[in-house]
Write a protein that binds this DNA or RNA. Structure first.
Length: 425
RNA sequence: GGAGAGGUGGCAGAGCGGUUGAAUGCAACGGUCUUGAAAACCGUCGAGGGUUAACGCCCUCCCAGGGUUCGAAUCCCUGCCUCUCCGCCA
């Protein structure tokens, strides 16, 4: 959520910045509601003040043994007036809240202008795109030939957009997770966290998935519980309603969880293979930092995610999302895109974002600023480090051999019992 | 699942329905004292919001949401959470 004070003080300026990302701010309606809010709030508080004052004097009179009936008569109508004013105020505030919760974050000035992913800006590339002296297969063919990927079984057990993994491929999947967790904890200063895979709606409001993106979530019937779409939700919510001391900052967590996404609105896209699933594993990096350090932290965080790809020797590029492609809560996002020979293009494997105080305001994540002595909002960030399923896809496709086997990247071999190759049965 | 107890400020812990946003202790911060520190003593010390140029004034918050009342941390209802005992279970 944006700062309501800022919206009041500079509505037009905020509207201009939001227009960059194609969001039209309802300035007239906001101005109108804010004016009503102000008038009603002042009136309500006056009435509350009157009630408090009179009640106190009644208390005093009673203690002094005086007849309080005349005083009671005087306040007879006050209660109704106050109730009406409070109800009106609540209604206006709810209307404003609904609008405010639907406003995305402001794009940072360094974010390129653009409509969609076509306009994202490439920052750098890393690694050599592999050349094959045969026609490279995609991960579905490779994985099925290895006996390690079974989409038909998953369709029988559940439905489309799920996968069953077997044997050496299942182990490879686990090995990737272990490698990522080990690097982030041992080399990048993150502390490992295990969190619930279901969260309540408060948590989802806090990180911004609700109220706007309910259709992307799996909701458990007759409960307030949802399956997490990313570990970002439970992990960032760890500091909801918390005031951190300066020496506790920055906080860095890494968590490995499955992620559940309904993928509503993605009907025809990536229907083949593991690229877009209802359930996938992800190792997630989350940081809570001082406000003056968040852009620095974004660069570092992105580097941490890149380190995994480098360790696996997978070619990738880094792009800055343009204003039109930027996520709802983010002010700036770098996507890491790994090269997939099966598709002959780069595909997203990590998304690293700085949210400024956008999530922190909803979550009331604060620190005690020693300069002011007051609790102030922190900045939150997160990034995938990495999406495990897509990393598996990248390994299978980039390390495939003409005979149908798949080499294991050096860094993974200790996690694979020393095996250097997956071979078809 | 059954029975009971409870949820108050950073922590601990009081709080007859009426000048209680909340005693007291600890912690924290500022000061006195000291070569320095400790101890002792004095003082400050919750959060959010409205209004104001500012000083200030005002409102809200004692798990959450309803209710009773002129007035609720205190009474009633519902929900959530925690603890103890029993049952079941990985």
């Amino acid at each position: 959520m944006l700062d309501p004070k800022r919206l009041r003080a500079d509505l037009e300026g905020v509207a201009r910045q939001l227009a960059r990302r194609g969001f039209e701010l309802a300035t007239d309606r906001i101005r109108d509601l804010e004016a009503q809010r102000k008038a009603l709030q002042v009136r309500t508080q006056e009435l509350q003040n009157e009630r408090n004052t009179r009640s106190k004097s009644i208390g005093r009179a009673k203690a002094a043994g005086e007849d309080i009936q005349p005083l009671l008569d005087e306040v007879a109508s006050l209660g109704d007036k106050l109730k009406a004013a409070e109800a009106d105020l609540e209604q206006i505030q709810a209307a404003l809240q609904e609008i405010y919760l639907g406003i995305p974050n402001l794009p940072h000035e360094s974010v390129p202008e653009g409509r969609d992913e076509e306009d994202n800006r490439e920052e750098r590339t890393w690694g050599e795109i592999p050349r094959f002296d045969f026609e490279p297969k995609d991960h579905v063919d490779i994985g099925e030939a290895l006996g390690g990927l079974d989409f038909d079984a998953a369709a029988k057990l559940t439905g489309s957009r799920f996968v069953v993994m077997h044997g050496q491929v299942a182990r490879l999947h686990r090995a990737l997770t272990q490698l990522m967790l080990d690097i982030h904890t041992a080399e990048h200063g993150y502390s490992e966290t295990y969190v619930p895979y279901m969260v309540n709606s408060d948590s989802l409001y806090g990180t911004g998935q609700l109220p706007k993106f309910a259709e992307d979530l799996f909701h458990l019937e007759d409960t307030d519980y949802y399956l997490i779409p990313t570990a970002e939700v439970p992990v960032t919510n760890l500091v909801r309603d918390v005031i951190l001391e300066p020496d506790q900052l920055p906080r860095r967590w890494v968590a490995h969880t499955p992620c559940f996404r309904s993928e509503a609105g993605a009907y025809g896209r990536d229907t083949r293979g593991m690229i877009r699933q209802h359930q996938f594993d992800k190792v997630e990096l989350v940081q809570t930092v001082r406000p003056d350090e968040s852009f620095e932290a974004l660069e570092a965080l992105t580097g941490h995610a890149e380190a995994i790809l480098q360790r696996l020797e997978l070619p990738y590029r880094v792009v800055t999302l343009c204003t039109g492609d930027l996520g709802f809560s983010s002010t700036k996002t770098y996507d890491l895109e790994v090269w997939l020979p099966g598709q002959g293009k780069y595909r997203e494997i990590s998304s690293c974002s700085n949210f400024l105080d956008f999530q922190a305001r909803r979550l009331r994540v604060r620190w005690r600023n020693p300069e002011t002595g007051k609790p102030e909002l922190l900045h939150t960030l997160n990034g995938s480090g990495l999406a495990v399923g897509r990393t598996l896809v990248a390994v299978l496709e980039n390390y495939q051999q003409a005979d149908g086997s798949v080499l294991i990247p050096e860094a993974l071999r200790p996690y694979m019992g020393g095996t250097d190759r997956l071979t078809p049965p």
